[in-house]
Design a protein around this nucleic acid. Structure first.
Length: 565
RNA sequence: GCGCCCGUAGCUCAGUCGGAUAGAGCGUCGGACUUCGAAUCCGAAGGUCGCAGGUUCGAUCCCUGCCGGGCGUACCA
């Protein structure tokens, strides 16, 4: 891994600690280095003096002067200034910055990787839509965020299990099975009505036709022996029907996600992986053994209120059925935490009331509070020309994820979702996104990459060989824009590490726009392939590094980096 | 009623752990292609950071109240 590039702030922090000790100032719990908004304020700034002023009983500026006076000489540091109320501004040494360029090129696809997660495992569940129909827009958002998170975390050394959990049991499954049965009967010419709370989507009609094609033995006559009343009929009939429908629907979901660039490590099943293994019963006993479950009104309750929830929660209903909560607790405890020390779930906003009780249960079972995280993926409001598109699974009206991919494209869709915080609701205008596709931010970033790729083709065509990166003389990179581009590239590892730590992939998307926004004007004004061979080679090295970082950043978002567009 | 999230430019959204003169894209207006890709670039206009207090060297950020929007508040999943 690179030595200079990765550790700019590490080096500065070390220098700061040394300076504090030498100046007889109290140590800092944490050294904070931020990139100032104003370029005139240097490349990195710390508020250390402002923080320490009170304890030191001196003015912030005096403290800052003292720190600067004792700051060790570092090759990375060009200048130290005390500014404003007592900030210490660091300007990096140009030679040191330029020297980082070959290191970025040498690191290649690994530039931006980190070690934060080394030896740690994370179980990351996302999308997990009910297997009652095709995926829709909000699932595309969750898929973009979840998949990017997985990539980010892996880049920092975490072992990530990306999981899709299929709720193929319980009430929704029954509703689907009954709806499907009605569609099958209709396909056979029966006058069967959809059940109440059924799923009216047209996809079940098509699916019913397919089912009959695969099962010629199922006829109107063969169904006559099956009673219409649930209680009287063999449960296995509905299980068989529902199971078949779920398998087909899940298959379809898997395909759409794959086309979107999202592939899961694990497709788990509520029925197969939890219920069939009797894990819920086991966790009920476990909770009872810990004195955290009790019977009341014929139901079994979990003492959630002992762990910060506002009330106790039902695990087993008085009719003997398990709640969804009980099944989920069992699954998290016995399966997810067996695989990883940390569990992160991406859920819809309708589940935010669920988070507290789930965390309560995890704590009750001995998992640390911070080992369990839920990210709420907010809703997507879909518009066409500013008009809301009604989406209702109930009524069978919605815009499908595959329609979104078809209409705006996979890269544009993913990038758009990743330029918003995941917990902020977003409006997505299909028409506008399509019409403005050429001005979409994703193309701005991709274009930078394509331009650089094209530049190297051009260079090759002119017979300009790019010399070995170790031997490139970078001194010709003397323009302020060039130095400032290199400095931005140096921010990348810190940025990626921060985005991974905060579970916020949108930071990467924004940063890439800023990088492209710095590259395009530079490239427009300054010619790379020119008469001055030394300058040409140095600039080629710079462009190669920019291209590499754009590629690495887009890879973290799951967005392609095209050679041409 | 109680709890959580959200109110930032005309629109869609960033703003890191409380930092310096609050940003970007789109849209609007005005410019730039004989040269490595104009999916680009240069410039302009655009703000009571919902409102009112508080905390402190400093608040878009933290605290309290209010206004406005969304969601939750099941022996549903």
């Amino acid at each position: 891994m690179t030595t200079t590039a990765r550790s700019v702030t590490d080096q500065l922090s070390e220098g700061l600690r040394t300076a504090l000790a030498a100046a007889g100032l109290p140590p800092l719990a944490e050294c904070v280095w931020e990139v100032p908004r104003e370029e005139a304020h240097g490349d990195y700034a710390t508020n250390a003096a402002l923080v320490l002023a009170r304890a030191a009983r001196r003015s912030p500026r005096q403290v800052a002067e003292s720190i600067v006076g004792h700051f060790p000489a570092l090759s990375a540091v060009g200048r130290l200034d005390v500014a404003g109320p007592g900030f210490i501004n660091v300007t990096l040494a140009p030679d040191w910055c330029r020297a980082a360029l070959p290191e970025i090129l040498a690191a290649g696809a690994g530039y931006g990787a980190g070690e934060d997660g080394r030896g740690r495992r994370i179980r990351l569940e996302f999308v997990s839509a009910n297997p009652t129909g095709p995926l829709v827009i909000v699932n595309a958002r969750a898929a973009a965020v979840g998949d990017s998170l997985a990539r980010l975390l892996r880049s920092q050394g975490y072992g990530v299990t990306a999981e899709y959990y299929v709720n193929d049991a319980g009430n929704q499954f029954l509703a689907l099975a009954r709806s499907f049965e009605a569609r099958v009967r209709q396909a056979l010419g029966e006058d069967a009505a959809l059940p109440e709370n059924g799923y009216p989507g047209e996809y079940l009609i098509d699916l019913a036709r397919d089912y009959l094609k695969d099962h010629p033995q199922v006829t109107r006559e063969s169904l006559e022996v099956i009673p219409a009343v649930d209680a009287l009929r063999d449960k296995s009939w509905l299980d068989e029907l529902g199971g078949w429908a779920v398998a087909r629907i899940v298959e379809g979901q898997k395909k759409v996600l794959h086309d979107y660039g999202v592939d899961f490590d694990v497709w788990s099943s509520e029925q197969r992986d939890v219920r069939d293994r009797a894990l819920p019963e086991q966790v009920l006993r476990e909770l009872a053994a810990r004195g955290l479950a009790y019977e009341q009104d014929g139901a079994l309750w979990f003492r959630a209120s002992q762990f910060g929830d506002e009330k106790d929660r039902v695990l087993r209903k008085s009719d003997g059925e398990l709640t969804y909560f009980a099944v989920d607790v069992a699954y998290h405890h016995y399966r997810k935490f067996a695989d990883a020390g940390r569990v992160v779930n991406l859920l819809g906003p309708d589940h935010h009331g669920y988070v507290t009780r789930m965390r309560a249960a995890m704590q009750a079972l001995g998992h640390p509070a911070d080992a369990f995280d839920v990210l709420i993926i907010q809703l997507v409001t879909l518009l066409r020309e500013g008009q809301p598109v009604r989406m209702s699974k109930r009524r069978g009206e919605f815009v499908l994820m595959e329609e979104l991919i078809e209409e705006v494209g996979r890269d544009a869709a993913r990038f758009t979702f990743l330029t918003r915080r995941h917990d902020s609701p977003l409006e997505f205008d299909l028409v506008v996104a399509t019409r403005q596709s050429a001005e979409n931010p994703v193309y701005y970033v991709q274009y930078a990459h394509a331009r650089i790729a094209s530049l190297f083709k051009q260079a090759a065509a002119q017979g300009i060989a790019v010399p070995d990166r170790g031997s490139v003389d970078l001194a010709p990179l003397a323009l302020p824009e060039e130095l400032s581009l290199v400095k931005r590239l140096l921010q990348f590892p810190n940025l990626v590490a921060g985005a991974a730590r905060a579970l916020e992939p949108h930071r990467v998307a924004y940063w890439l726009q800023e990088l492209a926004g710095q590259f395009h004007p530079y490239y427009k004004v300054n010619r790379v392939l020119g008469a001055d061979r030394a300058l040409t080679v140095a600039r080629l090295a710079l462009c190669a590094a920019v291209g590499q970082v754009v590629r690495n950043g887009l890879a973290l978002l799951g967005v392609s980096a095209p050679e041409s567009m």
